[in-house]
Design a protein around this nucleic acid. Structure first.
Length: 734
DNA sequence: CAGTGAGCGAGCTTCCGCTTGACTT
C-alpha cells in the first residue's frame, strides 16, 4: 500500500485546477497528538450505493455520498482563463457547500479516506476535487482512490484492498472536456441572444441533436411517396386458408405502379392453373438480447410502454432507490445510468439458480457472455434486477403500475439474456400460375427458449405465428381469390425519443445521464415539439440549426464529439497535452465567433409567424410569437395594439363559441391541459391534446390518446361517443 | 383512474456531466 499523501506526480497541466497542487509532503509527524483517529471514510457518488456498500464493509467503515460533482465552473461567467493557459476557475457548486463541509469533517475524524466515485472520467474528476478539498483542511491525511465495476461484497472488498492515487491524466482529460464544452456553449449561446432571441442556448451536444432533427425533417418534407400495387392470393386447402403475395411476373419482379397494372395482371391469371412449385424450410436461431444499458432501456420503455426518456429515468430511479418490500426498502434494480452490458458473476449465478429451478430446459450449459462495447466507459454493470427471485408477479402489489411494468421489462430482459436461444421454423411455399409466382410463408416457434420469460416486453412480431397446410411440390391448388392492394412507398420517419437516443448513442454523443435531458432541453427551448411522440423542429429550431450549420459547420457535425473523444484519449494516455488540445480548437473557433458576431444579419423580429387570425380590437392580422410561457398570438400592430391570445387548437364543442387552448396550472408547472377560453362561463376541459380532425360520428374534435401497445391513436373527446380512429396497417416494417 | 383555469410585450439568459433533495433570498 502506498503511504499517506501518495498521489504526487506530474500534474503540471492541472496546476490550473484551483491551484491545489499536492505540496511536497511536509514533515508529517510534527502535529501534536490528537485522539486516535477511528475508521475509514469511503466516499461514493450515490447515497443508495453508500447504504449498500456500508453493509458490505462493516463497522470500521463510514460510507458517505457526494451526490455527483461538488466543484465546477461558475455559472454566471465563462470561468476559463482564455488569455492564459485555459485555467478553469473551479468553485464549490451552489448548494453543495454544506455537503462538502460534512465530507471534510468526516475525513478529519478518519485515519484514511477512500475515494470511490464512479470508475470513469467524471468519477475521477469528482475524486480529484474532493481530494484537494480535504487535503486543504487535513494536509496529512492519507487519501486514496479505489474503483469497482460492480456492487458485490467481493468486488468492494477487492477494491478496498487495492487503493491507488487519483489518476491525474484522466482528470486532465475531464478538464479538457469540461472546458471545451464551456467554451462552445458560453460563446455560441450569447451569439444567439444577440442575433435571434434572449435566453437561447447552443452546445456541443444539444446543437447536434437539434441538427439531426432538422435534417430529418427536411428529408421527411422532401420525400415524395410513390404509388405501387400488390396482388395477393388467398389459397385454400381443406379448411386452411393461407395467403401468398405475388413475387414474380414473367421472370422478374412485378412492377405495378397503377391500379390498372394490378387489375390487368389479375385478368391475365383468369384461366391460369395454380400449382405448388417449390417448398423450402428454414430454421432461424434467435439469440436473446444483452441486458439493458440506459440507452436500450429508454428505447424499450418508449417502444413497449410508451414512456418518454424522462419518465423512464424517473421510474427507474424509484426502483433503484428501493421500494418497501416486507418492511425495509430494497433496491430492486442496479444503477440505471450505465453504458455497459456487463453482468457480475454473482448475478449470473443468481439467474442460473433461478432458471435451473423454473426453466431447466432453457438453461444453457455455460453462461451467456455479452462483449463490452469498445466505447463503453463501463463504470457500472448493466441494468438488471438485484434479485431474480423477486419476479415481477411477486412484486405486483408493492409497485405502482408504471414501476411494475418497467421492472418487468428489466427483469425479463436480464433473465432472458441467460437463457437458450429460440428457434423458428419458416416454411416458404412458391405457387406458380402461368407467368406468375406467389409466395406464402408461415413461421412457427419450434423452441421457445428465452421467449418463455418474455411477457410484458413481447412485441407484436414476437407473438405472431402463422400456419401452413401440408403441401407437396406439383400439387394443384384450387383457384384462389385474388386481391389487389394500393400502397405508397414509406419515407423516412421523424425521430422519437427512442430513435433519437439510439442515434446519439451510435455517434457517441451524450452520456447515459444526459440522454433524457438532451431531449428535455430542446423541448424547453421551444426548438422542437413532440406530437404523437414525434420530434419535429419549430420555426425557431430550424433557424437556430441553420445559423449554426452555416457558421460553425464543424462544431455541429456528428463527428465533432468523436474527434474530441479522440483527443481526450490521447490526453488520458499521456500522449497529448490538454491545454494544447483546447488552444488548437479555441483559436480558430473564437475568431469565427467574433466574425459571425460582427457580420451575421440579425434574425430578431423574424421569428414571428403569420397566421390567418385577426385582432378583434383593431382588425390587423395576428402573428404567432414565442414568449416566456411558449407560443401565443399577438397583434401585429404591437406596440400600438397590445392584444394577445392563446393559440386556438379547436372550437369548443360544448358552447360552440370559445376556443380550446392549452393551459397549465398556476406557477407554470403541472401537466398541460386543454380548456375553453370562455371559462368560467364554459367549463369544457380535457387532458388529451386536440388534433385538427373532427369526429365523423358526432362532429366533436379528435384528441391524441396514448395507447399502450401501438403508440397513440386518435379518439373522440366526446365522452358519449365511442369513436376510435384505427391506425392503418402500413408502416409495419422498420 | 383522476386530475383544472395567468399572462406573456424585451433585459442578465447560456454549456455538459455527475448526483438527489429543496437553504430561504
Amino acid at each position: 500500500m502506498s503511504g499517506g499523501g501518495g498521489s504526487t506526480g506530474r500534474s503540471a497541466g492541472l496546476a490550473a485546477a484551483g491551484g491545489r497542487e499536492p505540496k511536497a509532503a511536509k514533515s508529517a509527524p510534527a502535529k501534536a497528538k490528537k485522539p486516535a483517529k477511528q475508521g475509514v471514510l469511503v466516499i461514493v457518488e450515490s447515497p443508495a450505493k453508500a447504504k449498500t456498500i456500508e453493509k458490505y464493509l462493516g463497522r470500521d467503515y463510514t460510507v458517505l455520498a457526494s451526490m455527483g460533482h461538488l466543484i465546477d465552473l461558475p455559472k454566471s461567467r465563462l470561468g476559463v482563463d482564455v488569455e492564459g493557459g485555459f485555467e478553469p476557475e473551479y468553485l464549490t457548486i451552489r448548494g453543495k457547500a454544506k455537503l462538502l463541509k460534512e465530507l471534510r469533517r468526516a475525513a478529519k475524524k478518519s485515519r484514511l479516506v477512500l475515494l470511490a466515485s464512479d470508475n470513469d472520467r467524471e468519477g475521477e474528476a469528482i475524486s480529484y476535487h474532493i481530494r484537494n478539498s480535504i487535503r486543504d483542511k487535513v494536509p496529512d491525511l492519507p487519501i486514496e482512490r479505489i474503483v469497482f465495476n460492480e456492487i458485490t461484497p467481493q468486488a468492494i472488498k477487492e477494491a478496498v484492498g487495492h487503493p491507488r492515487p487519483v489518476d491525474e491524466t484522466k482528470v486532465r482529460a475531464q478538464t479538457a472536456r469540461r472546458v471545451l464544452d464551456r467554451l462552445v456553449g458560453y460563446h455560441l449561446s450569447p451569439l444567439l441572444w444577440k442575433k435571434v432571441k434572449n435566453g437561447l442556448s447552443a452546445g456541443r451536444v444539444q446543437s447536434v441533436a437539434l441538427r439531426l432533427i432538422c435534417d430529418r425533417e427536411r428529408e421527411v418534407e422532401g420525400f415524395l411517396p410513390e404509388e405501387y400495387w400488390s396482388v395477393e392470393a388467398d389459397f385454400r386447402k381443406g379448411r386452411t386458408v393461407f395467403s401468398g403475395e405475388l413475387v414474380s411476373w414473367r421472370g422478374g419482379r412485378p412492377v405495378l405502379s397503377r391500379a390498372a397494372d394490378a387489375e390487368g395482371l389479375v385478368a391475365a391469371l383468369r384461366s391460369a392453373h395454380f400449382a405448388v412449385a417449390d417448398i423450402r424450410e428454414s430454421e432461424k436461431i434467435q439469440r436473446p438480447k444483452p441486458p439493458f444499458t440506459t440507452s436500450k432501456l429508454q428505447q424499450a420503455a418508449a417502444n413497449r410502454l410508451g414512456f418518454t426518456s424522462k419518465k423512464t429515468m424517473q421510474v427507474a430511479q424509484q426502483l433503484y432507490e428501493g421500494v418497501e418490500v416486507g418492511g425495509a426498502p430494497v433496491g430492486l434494480i442496479t444503477y440505471m445510468r450505465t453504458d455497459s452490458t456487463r453482468i457480475s458473476r454473482a448475478a449470473i449465478d443468481d439467474a442460473r439458480a433461478y432458471l435451473s429451478a423454473e426453466h431447466p430446459a432453457e438453461l444453457p450449459e455455460s453462461p451467456n457472455v455479452y462483449e463490452a462495447d469498445g466505447k463503453a466507459q463501463d463504470a457500472h454493470e448493466a441494468v438488471r434486477p438485484t434479485s431474480v427471485a423477486r419476479t415481477p408477479d411477486s412484486l405486483k402489489d408493492q409497485l405502482s403500475k408504471d414501476q411494475h411494468r418497467l421492472y418487468a421489462l428489466v427483469w425479463e430482459r436480464f433473465v432472458a439474456s441467460q437463457m437458450t436461444p429460440a428457434k423458428t421454423r419458416t416454411t416458404s411455399v412458391d405457387v406458380a400460375a402461368g407467368e406468375a409466382v406467389f409466395r406464402a410463408a408461415a413461421s412457427r416457434l419450434v423452441e421457445k427458449g428465452f421467449y418463455k420469460v418474455i411477457k410484458v416486453s413481447a412485441s407484436k412480431e414476437d407473438r405472431a405465428e402463422s400456419f401452413m397446410p401440408e403441401l407437396k411440390v406439383g400439387e394443384e391448388l384450387a383457384r384462389p381469390a385474388l386481391r389487389t392492394g394500393q400502397h405508397f412507398t414509406q419515407g423516412p420517419s421523424r425521430f422519437t425519443d427512442a430513435t433519437m437516443i439510439k442515434a446519439l448513442e451510435e455517434e457517441g454523443i451524450g452520456r447515459p445521464s444526459t440522454y433524457a435531458p438532451i431531449i428535455s432541453v430542446l423541448l424547453e427551448r421551444y426548438y422542437v415539439t413532440r406530437d404523437n411522440r414525434q420530434l419535429a423542429p419549430t420555426v425557431l429550431g430550424r433557424m437556430i440549426s441553420d445559423i449554426l450549420v452555416e457558421s460553425f459547420p464543424d462544431v455541429v457535425e456528428v463527428g465533432f464529439t468523436a474527434g474530441m473523444e479522440g483527443g481526450l484519449d490521447r490526453v488520458e494516455e499521456g500522449a497529448g497535452d490538454w491545454v494544447a488540445m483546447i488552444r488548437d480548437f479555441y483559436g480558430p473557433f473564437k475568431e469565427r465567433v467574433d466574425e459571425v458576431m460582427a457580420t451575421l444579419q440579425s434574425y430578431r423580429g423574424r421569428l414571428d409567424e403569420p397566421t390567418d387570425a385577426t385582432c378583434e380590437k383593431c382588425g390587423r392580422p395576428m402573428v404567432k410569437k414565442l414568449g416566456r410561457f411558449g407560443f401565443f398570438l399577438a397583434c401585429s400592430g404591437f406596440p400600438a395594439c397590445k392584444t394577445t391570445r392563446s393559440i386556438p387548437l379547436a372550437r369548443c364543442p360544448r358552447c360552440g363559441q370559445g376556443d380550446i387552448v392549452a393551459r397549465r396550472r398556476a406557477k407554470g408547472r403541472g401537466r398541460e391541459f386543454y380548456g375553453c377560453t370562455r371559462y368560467p362561463d364554459c367549463d369544457f376541459v380535457t387532458y388529451h391534446k386536440p388534433t385538427s380532425s373532427t369526429c365523423p360520428k358526432c362532429g366533436w374534435f379528435l384528441v391524441e390518446k396514448t395507447d399502450r401497445k401501438s403508440g397513440s391513436r386518435k379518439a373522440c373527446v366526446n365522452p358519449a361517443c365511442d369513436y376510435l380512429h384505427s391506425r392503418g396497417e402500413e408502416g409495419e416494417n422498420g
